[in-house]
Design a protein around this nucleic acid. Sequence first.
DNA 1: AATTTAGTTAGTCAATTAGCAAATTAGCTA
DNA 2: TAGCTAATTTGCTAATTGACTAACTAAATT
Lengths: 125, 125
Amino acid sequence: MLDMEKKLKIFKALSNQTRFMIFKNVFTGGYTCSLDKVQPGVKVNPIATCVSTVAEHFNFSLPTISAHIKELKEANIITVEKKGNKVYIEPNIETIREMAECFQALVTNFDNNRELFFGDTLSVK
Amino acid sequence: MLDMEKKLKIFKALSNQTRFMIFKNVFTGGYTCSLDKVQPGVKVNPIATCVSTVAEHFNFSLPTISAHIKELKEANIITVEKKGNKVYIEPNIETIREMAECFQALVTNFDNNRELFFGDTLSVK
DNA sequence: AATTTAGTTAGTCAATTAGCAAATTAGCTA
DNA sequence: TAGCTAATTTGCTAATTGACTAACTAAATT
């Protein structure tokens, strides 16, 4: 379960446009870099990318992108794994699934409460 | 549909602990202030609260809380309505529903892609 | 009409953030 | 081993954020 502190980190990580775009592209596999460069025998998720490949797609310096990726990692919405001198980045689907569940729980509870206590109406006299 | 700019605002709004707590309590109805003070004939959501009632529950000044509420409003995750000299605050369930759908769509697409393209396995040789 | 209540606006300040370049570390390659 | 590639760390700056108090506006109460 995601406690408040973890949620705050996730929201903060996703509140910056650059990080949001990195996340988007890591998540949708837009910047795949691993399959064509991987050493024989190295096991890497085929949608993984790496820091410099991500950086190629932004007009920001590598250190800036690296720092953003670190923040996404610390929010636990991506995972990173060093193989050789590259750092492979993958989406952390479990955290996203939990976020979906949190928001959905809010909606469900809200609807249930409204029905149970207020007869499914939003206004009172 | 929530475009990127709207999502960024929502994430930013929820990335601050004070705003997160305000949101939580507005959403779960913890700080109800309206029913016992409402004027005859004034229609207010029974789970609505107002700015000063929220502020009572925090060790921050009223202007600070007011500014936080403004940011939550501009992120469209709460709505505010002035009645007399009070501002009643309500959760905006529709935006939360959309957030739940966005995260769920990400999860669903990820699972589908993995199954379709990678045979439901995360690693390749 | 004067006072109180509810809330916002304006101005200030310290802390944090997001960017950069330079230096450093670690691993690969010739 | 020397040099290249990938990434991180360090130190810097400008902009933004989150808090405050004081001053203000608007509505309700006395």
